[in-house]
Amino acid sequence: MRRVRLLVLGMLSLSLAAPGYASRPATDSAATPRSPVAAELRATLAAQPRGDLQRGKALHQSLMCAACHGETGVAPTGNWSSLAGQRAAYTYKSLLDYQRGDRHEDDRANLMAVVVRDMTRQDMADVADYYASLPPPPAAAPKLTGETRRHIEQLVRRGDPARLLTPCASCHGASGQGGNNETPALAGQSVGSLAQTLHDYRSGRRVTDANQGMRQFAQRLTPDEIEALAKYYASLSGKRR
C-alpha cells in the first residue's frame, strides 16, 4: 500500500516537474503528430499558470499575432481564426500543440510553429488570458435559410443518433460560447476558418483532439454540412462568460 502511494506521489511530482505534455526538440518539427493522452492533457491544463493580461497584450504585439488574427483578436480574413473571447484553456492548449510539433496540418500551422518556438508556458498563459479578456467577434449576417437551417439547428441541438453524432451544443455550448476545459468557443468565427478546421479533422490531418472527439464527429459530416455549420456559427454572437 505504501509502495503504491509512493509510486503515485512519484508520478505526480514527475508530472509537475515536466507535465506529460512535454515539448519536443525544435528540430523535430517533421515528426508524426501525436494525439494527446487525455490524462496528460488534464494534468497539463490543471497546471496552466495564471496569465498576466499586460504581458499577454505585449506578446500579442511583439510576436506579430495581429498580422493574421487581427489587432483586436478578430481576424480580418477568413483564413485565420479569431481569438478574442476564446476560452483560455483552448488557446493555451493550441499553443502547446504547435510547440510540441503536433500540428502541421496546413500552412497556417507551419507558420504558428515558427511563432511559438521560444514561448514559455507563462507566455502562452499570458496571451491565452489576454485573448479571453477581449470582446468576442461580432456575429455575421445569417446565411442559412429553409431546410438547411432546420437541418443544421437539429445537428447542433439534437445531433444525429443515426450517425452516432452528439449535438455540437453539448460540448460547445447552446450558443457556441464554448464548454468545459479546452472546448473552444465557435460563435463569430469566420466561415473559412471554422470550415478549414473541420475539414482538417475530417481528413485526419489534424489529430490534436483528445479521445478523437472532433475527428469522429467530423468524419461523419458531409462537406456541405461542414460549410453550413461554419455559416451557422459565424452568425452567432459570442456571449461573455
Partner: peptide, 15 residues
C-alpha cells in the same frame, strides 16, 4: 530583430 521576426522572414520567403 527578434528571433521570431527572423524565423517569420524565412517562412515568408517560402510563401
Amino acid at each position: 530583430a527578434s528571433k521570431t521576426r527572423i524565423r517569420l522572414a524565412a517562412r515568408y520567403q517560402q510563401a
